[in-house]
């Protein structure tokens, strides 16, 4: 290996003339975090809605839910990113398309929408399996009490299902964070794109990606830690084995 290490390149001025390369990496981390958080919130909303639709005893809801899930989880994320960013504005009426193209930070909104739908489809499956793991008697009991179907979901089924699937949602959150790097393909300057920009500018490729790796790892460890706290709070005593001892 004939490589010249130069960690001080991190402190040299980046191409924008104001920030050092290290600061641009932190800025990239901020965009990664913003994108991941927004996308995961969207994914939870979309996923909950679709998960309920797929489990509800209404045929057309099942079909719509299934179509959405299979479409979004079976098309590669990169392709979806391109479709949202480059193809969608062309399909809209001219005025709407132009508005979309001129929108400041369009890459960010597009990335959030794309990741939200992709991970929403996956969260839907998680929520559906959570609902499926409940005994049928719970839904029946709710209805016997005179609750409507939406009320049964709202007050009986979903509160239990969510608490059961928190550990699975943790992995989904981590995947969302890592998948934000795909957004560099539509020009979002998140952490990976910042590392690439530093590597192009200085040719110190290992330094740039080493720092990016550490930042990704740190971010995801923080997420894991926070989700563990949530898991402990949300666990249903006696429902999942091993939890009482804090085995997780």
């Amino acid at each position: 290996m004939d490589y010249t290490w130069n960690w001080s390149a991190l402190w040299s001025l980046s191409l924008d003339g104001r920030l050092t390369y290290f600061e641009t990496l932190l800025l990239g981390l901020a965009w990664t975090l913003a994108t991941a958080l927004s996308a995961f919130v969207l994914a939870l909303l979309v996923g909950s809605l679709l998960g309920v639709m797929r489990s509800a005893p209404v045929a057309w809801m099942n079909r719509v839910g299934a179509c959405f899930v299979e479409l979004f989880r079976n098309v590669p994320l990169l392709v979806q990113m391109f479709l949202w960013y480059f193809v969608l504005p062309e399909l809209l009426p001219d005025a709407a398309g132009d508005w979309l193209k001129q929108l400041p930070d369009a890459q960010f909104y597009t990335a959030v929408l794309c990741l939200g739908c992709y991970h929403g489809a996956r969260v839907a499956e998680v929520v559906r399996s959570g609902l499926g793991s409940l005994s049928r008697g719970q839904g029946m009991a709710g209805q016997a009490l005179g609750l409507t179907l939406p009320q049964t979901y709202r007050y009986v089924l979903l509160p239990m299902a969510y608490r059961i699937v928190v550990p699975t949602l943790t992995s989904e959150f981590l995947s969302t964070t890592k998948n934000t790097s795909v957004a560099l393909a539509i020009g979002l300057v998140e952490l990976t794109a910042s590392a690439r920009a530093m590597q192009e500018g200085t040719f110190q490729v290992f330094e740039a990606f080493a720092v990016a790796t550490v930042l990704y790892l740190a971010l995801n460890l923080v997420i894991v830690f926070l989700m563990r706290v949530l898991e402990r709070k949300a666990q249903v005593p006696g429902y999942v084995s091993g939890h009482e001892k804090g085995g997780r």
Partner: peptide
């Protein structure tokens, strides 16, 4: 206006300088 340039190239620096 909005312009595009490849990330990490000298063009980025030139454009930022012109902007400033």
């Amino acid at each position: 206006k909005t312009i595009v340039t490849p990330a990490g190239t000298t063009s980025v620096r030139l454009l930022n300088e012109a902007n400033n």
